[in-house]
Design a protein around this nucleic acid. Structure first.
Length: 100
DNA sequence: GTCGTGACTAGCC
DNA sequence: CGGCTAGCCACGA
């Protein structure tokens, strides 16, 4: 852990399949609860696309947020893992949220 | 060192 | 429920 970005990727990488985490949550985990925005930036530029499950990271209100390859793609992936989604938002968020 | 930008958030209307 | 605002942070030019 050296750069902020690396920390983000390392934590994101640990999110189990079928679960999701929020930007704020990850920010808190790395010791910077106010850096949710910066976390989003890190994921957007993440060079470990296939290694880091960036599609399992969503907003605190349950919105999908965004995705480098397209929001639609992100939704599809999450649904595939068992996450229930309606439009651009996650249903039963608390049920899929992984506690860090 | 300063400025613009963005996968954020909480609060208010 | 939806939209707007101000506050936050890290990065690259």
């Amino acid at each position: 852990m050296k750069n902020f970005n690396q920390s983000v990727w390392q934590v994101t990488k640990k999110i189990p399949k079928g679960k999701v985490a929020t930007y704020a949550m990850l920010a808190r985990k790395i010791g910077k609860p106010k850096s949710a925005r910066a976390v989003g930036n890190a994921l957007n530029k993440n060079p470990f696309a296939p290694i880091v499950p960036c599609h399992r990271v969503i907003r605190s209100d349950g919105s999908i947020g965004g995705f480098a390859s397209g929001t639609n793609k992100k939704i599809k992936l999450l649904k595939k893992e068992g996450i229930l989604i309606r439009g651009t938002k996650v249903l039963s968020l608390e049920k899929f949220l992984v506690r860090l």
